Computed example of a mutant assay.
Amino acid sequence: MRTVDLNSDLGEGLGSWGMGDDDALLDIVTSANVACGYHAGDPSIMRRVSEHATRIGVAIGAHVAYRDLAGFGRRFIDVDAATLRDEVTYQIAALAGIARLAGGTVSYVKPHGGLYNAIVTHESQAAAVVAAVKDFDPGLTLMGLPGSAVLRLAQEAGLPVAHEAFADRAYTPEGHLVSRKEPGAVLHDPEEIGRRCIAMATGEPIQDINGDPLTLQPDSICVHGDTPGAVAIARSLRSALEGAGVGLSPFTRVG
Rank of each mutant, 00 (worst) to 15 (best):
His39Cys: 07
Ala40Asn: 13
Gly41Trp: 14
Gly41Asp: 12
Asp42Gln: 07
Asp42Glu: 04
Ser44Glu: 15
Arg47Phe: 11
Arg47Trp: 05
Ser50Val: 06
His52Tyr: 12
His52Cys: 10
Ala53Tyr: 05
Gly57Arg: 01
Val58His: 04
Val58Glu: 03
Ala59Phe: 12
Ala59Leu: 13
Ala59Pro: 08
Ile60Gly: 02
Ile60Val: 13
Ile60Asp: 03
Gly61Ala: 11
Gly61Met: 09
Gly61Val: 09
Ala62Glu: 08
His63Glu: 05
Val64Leu: 05
Tyr66Glu: 05
Asp68His: 09
Leu69Asp: 03
Ala70His: 10
Ala70Asn: 10
Phe72Glu: 01
Gly73Glu: 06
Arg75Thr: 11
Phe76Gln: 05
Phe76Glu: 10
Ile77Pro: 00
Ile77Gln: 11
Val79Thr: 10
Val79Phe: 00
Asp80Ser: 02
Asp80Thr: 01
Ala81Ile: 09
Asp86His: 04
Asp86Trp: 02
Tyr90Asp: 15
Ile92Tyr: 00
Ile92Met: 00
Ile92Arg: 00
Ala93Gln: 06
Ala94Pro: 05
Leu95Gln: 04
Leu95Ala: 03
Ile98Phe: 13
Ile98Gln: 14
Ala99Gln: 09
Gly104Cys: 06
Val106Thr: 05
Val106Lys: 03
Ser107Ala: 14
Ser107Tyr: 08
Val109Met: 02
Lys110His: 08
Lys110Gln: 06
Lys110Arg: 08
Pro111Thr: 00
Gly113Asp: 02
Gly114Tyr: 07
Leu115Ala: 01
Tyr116Ser: 07
Ala118Glu: 05
Val120Glu: 15
Thr121Ser: 14
Thr121Glu: 14
His122Asn: 12
Glu123Ala: 15
Glu123Tyr: 11
Gln125Ser: 11
Ala126Asn: 11
Val129Leu: 07
Val130Gln: 07
Ala131Tyr: 04
Lys134Met: 09
Lys134Gln: 14
Pro138Glu: 12
Gly139Val: 02
Leu142His: 09
Met143Thr: 11
Met143Leu: 15
Met143Ser: 12
Met143Phe: 15
Leu145Ala: 13
Leu145Thr: 14
Gly147Ala: 10
Gly147Asp: 11
Ser148Ile: 08
Ala149Leu: 14
Leu151Tyr: 00
Arg152Ser: 12
